[in-house]
Design a protein around this nucleic acid. Structure first.
Lengths: 213, 213
DNA sequence: AGACGCATACATTCGTGTATGTAAATTGAT
DNA sequence: ATCAATTTACATACACGAATGTATGCGTCT
């Protein structure tokens, strides 16, 4: 504790984010005491209040750092021109599942998001960001499904809106449940077969809703 | 406030459960003040502490009342002999989704469970109960899938463990996401097509994991 | 006459936010 | 380059509100 340069401050900030993720996972976000986060990072609450306004802002920063890699994948896929839209969708989903399977930080992140967090007004900015990300992801995937229909990869009668929501639900459910029991099956190895099953269902029996969307 | 008979006490208890479900949904379980629950039910905290030991026990009671109808369906299906196991699985899943689509209380329940609750040590008994229910549901569905394979309704090479977890994830994801935006699509009408898509995928391209489960 | 079904009152704990202290680091002027 | 002046990056101390659990009171039913 001899130096306090700018990079040291960034290191402290990062240590706080790491500590917060761990404590959030252990105690839940709402029950987490900022003193615990500070202690885990080897500092005091003063450091937290210097870098963040309150717990909500700390949580938002944790979420932002945690979802960056996934968003980067989506952004990259949206930039490149797709010759095989259906394969692109599959690769995106596969990447997300493999990212979860392979990275402990990502597992902690989704464990907190899915099971250790209450999305109330207090966390409104995080909720808004999540909603925006989800909407962007959904519209992007639906656009790819539309291209897949146009390219003859999916039946003409495919309701791409429902297909998209179905795939998204599938992904959410797989991650939601797998983080509860990571040892129940090898997600990294089973991700592709599981995805293929749903995509095969899409090809053979695409969902169609009686009433319009 | 003229009578205080036994049935009145049960009515109070039920009013507390209803009020708790609402407040849990609005404020989140952790941030819910028992005073708010009591006020919503038209009583004071004294009534809560008479019927329940603390917030955790109140939440457990809310969960138990909320999941009773679904568990009744599962229990009934397990008792009757199944001639068409695949159709039984479909009907079970369909019932669950339609129950969610049609009942406001069920929507509130799952909204709380999925998005307004932190599963920490404090709620250990509820977590244990959830785990037991999930395990029972999974093994029951897997048994039906096994029967479906034996009856030739599914390919011989089907990994019924993965198929079960895939369907379960699909269900969880559909409910998890739909309660966020119930107006995005008509779940009651789309539930069957969505299920048919996954089940068609199971028939045509059943999941198989490279490594054993 | 108890036991039941709550309401009321009280004390206590607990976490937060802020105010203040402070040493090191950076800046700017010479 | 040197040296004050200022800002950074926290640590420490404090005061406040808020929610909990319990203790007690009180009318009603059995």
């Amino acid at each position: 504790m001899v130096k306090k340069t700018r990079e040291d401050a960034l290191a402290t900030r990062d240590a706080l984010l790491t500590a917060a993720l761990q404590v959030f996972r252990e105690r839940g976000v709402a029950h987490t005491r900022l003193a615990d986060v500070a202690a885990r990072a080897g500092v005091t609450r003063g450091a937290i209040y210097w870098h963040f306004r309150d717990k909500a802002e700390l949580f938002a920063a944790v979420c932002e750092r945690g979802t960056l890699p996934v968003e980067a994948l989506l952004a990259e896929a949206s930039r490149t021109v797709q010759r095989d839209p259906l394969a692109t969708v599959k690769q995106l989903a596969l990447m997300a599942l493999k990212q979860l399977a392979g990275h402990a930080d990502t597992q902690a992140m989704f464990d907190v998001i899915f099971h250790k967090c209450e999305f109330t007004d207090e966390l409104a900015p995080v909720v808004a960001r999540n909603d925006a990300d989800r909407a962007a992801c959904l519209s992007q995937v639906q656009a790819l499904f539309d291209q897949a229909v146009a390219a003859g990869q999916l039946p003409t009668e495919t309701d791409t809106f429902l297909a998209t929501h179905g795939l998204h639900a599938y992904m959410v459910g797989l991650m939601h449940e797998w983080v509860l029991t990571p040892d129940s099956y090898d997600l990294d190895a089973c991700a592709e077969p599981l995805l293929d099953t749903y995509l095969a269902g899409l090809s053979q029996r695409p969902p169609r809703c009686p009433k319009p969307t």
